[in-house]
Design a protein around this nucleic acid. Structure first.
Lengths: 339, 339
DNA sequence: TACGGTAAGGAAAATCTTTTCCCATTGACC
DNA sequence: GGTCAATGGGAAAAGATTTTCCTTACCGTA
């Protein structure tokens, strides 16, 4: 079939453990022990083997090693996000933690299609990954990816609807609380809420969190929350609407940064000076959006990378037999810019 | 060590090929042949084995298979982009093509740090990936990731500085040509250029492409290209500047969508009506930015997914011994919105 | 001097599947 | 009826490493 690419003319066989053994004048078992720090060997022998291995540029074939170990030191990450806004930081965090455990991740893009997802799941199991992270894109609970899987699974960002699964989520109510605390601290008292569609759990949670936090400060919300879409256009429109009915508003908590950006534009175009007259806080800390807004947005960072890190840590622990089922909440933090 | 999680009480050993063989009443070799469609077997036998395998839920252990095959059916993707704007679509395309070849990708985030990159490279080689895709974030040629690697490498988006390597890049000049053609077709004649820093190859290439394309239409550029940053703020600023010196401009080709968005804002705020008085074209087709602009941006899509797909295809071919070194250019296409 | 203990390292089993012979059986043709 | 060919399937090697015993040699003590 494939006519041997690469190597000049064939004979350059891979260097295996036997070559190292020959060079060091020991048996293969001894090489293995020397290189893995196991068994009882003289230091001198260990050093000699290591030297031989280095000279030959030996690296053990992981396939053989995995065969013995019965595992692959590999995990699968299935994202529903097409590597989008939320999946990316989560993945980055996960990669960090995994690397610390000498693991590496297969990436699969589910594209929000259950069929694709199942297909990827099958492929991952076929390759005998040691565990799976399912990274979502919305905070609404999702149906578990499978029942009785032979490997542990951790759900990141979008929790599993089965509370017996292990999920790592953002602190939605806490985000609202952080926003309110900032607004109150900067002297705002008449605080409104413009957010995404009511069909999204995050919109509801953040709205509920806002209500709680305002109550804790003995403040009344300004009007009902404005539920709409996660878009700039909605932000602009709602801001104009808000001014029409509640002229005296002096703070707006927005469901995300994109909306917040629309809100700042809408307010500015209505002649409001920011941040003097009205303070605006978003959610997401999406650099591109938050920094390009005028003024740059103060916003709540949901700690997505931390969610990724934590997910991977929990997965590693589960792989080691110490599963910690339940919902794990990762706190966010406020990023203060000018708005 | 790890006290056996999962399975109820220990004895449920993995089902292996021997179990299937026993159940089907044949030898293990026959099972292998039946399941892989190799060898000469009666259809009846094949069916019986398959049935047994299904009933037992048998899937071959890939480690054992890899050991024999001498390969892993796995590739590594090293991105320098932190899975950002450019890496994502490239990866998605690559995943598509790889899946078609029954391959799967390890993802490594280089974070633009050569040390990290080398570390990842080492990890990938240790795991004996069959090939590597290096996905860049800028179109400037980059230094090769390594010399004399034991596996083929394809550079995606950011080409290797070594022309003997295999690189897949976007058509930067073609992008400018597409933009000019659209502007000219919509009646624009006084076309200016606002773009990113001159230190970026893409800014230069696009500027050069613009000059060529204008010349082809017997048009003079309006002023020198405005080189600056890839930001909205620069776009706004440069637009104002442009109007001051070239009031009669009726078209602007922007180096990317973010700049273009700034330009639309700048022009609008200067009282220009869009797209009536001035047509604006961006580059990137970054949905979030292009669609949120007022008016939504007409822009050149560089075909990043296609770059990913093509890269993976070339890598698969190289793995099969048919390397195609050189620079492979993937054409972009115009996405017409309202601007 | 002989025996027990320990340290160092070797031999071989184990891991699971694929693939290469090789053998046996059956059918066909002379 | 006998021989040859083809077809179906089995046995065993191969693949690279880890790990579990074992062996050997050396030292100290009785």
């Amino acid at each position: 079939m494939t006519d041997e690419p690469g190597s000049p003319a064939g004979t350059a066989r891979r260097v295996g453990i036997v070559d190292v053994a020959a060079r060091a004048g020991v048996s293969v078992g001894t090489v293995s022990k020397a290189l893995n720090g196991s068994g009882r060997l003289r230091d001198e022998t260990r050093a000699r083997v290591r030297a031989a291995a280095d000279e030959l540029g030996f690296t053990p074939l992981s396939a053989a090693r995995n065969l013995l170990a019965g595992r692959t030191f590999t995990v699968g990450v299935i994202t529903t996000d097409s590597y989008g806004r939320f999946g990316i930081p989560v993945m980055r965090g996960a990669e960090d933690s995994l690397a610390a455990g000498e693991m590496i991740a297969f990436l699969c893009d589910g594209r929000d299609d259950p069929l694709r997802e199942q297909h990827h799941l099958g492929k991952l199991l076929e390759r005998r990954v040691d565990g799976i992270i399912v990274a979502g894109r919305r905070t609404d609970p999702r149906r578990p990816i499978g029942a009785d899987l032979p490997v542990p699974v951790v759900y990141a960002f979008a929790p599993s609807s089965d509370p017996a699964d292990c999920s790592v989520v953002s602190d939605e109510r806490g985000a609202a609380r952080l926003a309110v605390e900032h607004l109150v601290k900067t002297g705002r008292r008449r605080i409104a809420h413009i957010t995404g569609p009511q069909s999204h759990a995050s919109a509801n949670e953040r709205a509920a969190g806002l209500a709680e936090a305002l109550a804790a400060h003995d403040l009344e919300p300004v009007g009902e929350p404005y539920f709409g879409g996660w878009t700039e256009a909605w932000g602009r429109f709602a801001a104009a609407q808000l001014l029409r009915t509640h002229e005296d508003v002096d703070g707006v908590f927005c469901g995300n940064d994109v909306i917040a950006r629309g809100v700042t534009d809408g307010l500015r175009e209505a002649g409001i000076s920011l941040p003097t007259q009205v303070g605006v806080v978003g959610v997401d800390n999406w650099g591109l959006v938050a920094e390009a807004a005028r003024p740059p947005l103060t916003t709540v960072d949901l700690g997505l990378e931390e969610i990724g890190r934590r997910s991977a840590e929990l997965l590693l622990e589960a792989i080691n037999g110490h599963a910690q089922p339940g919902i794990h909440v990762v706190p966010g933090h406020l990023v203060v810019r000018e708005s």
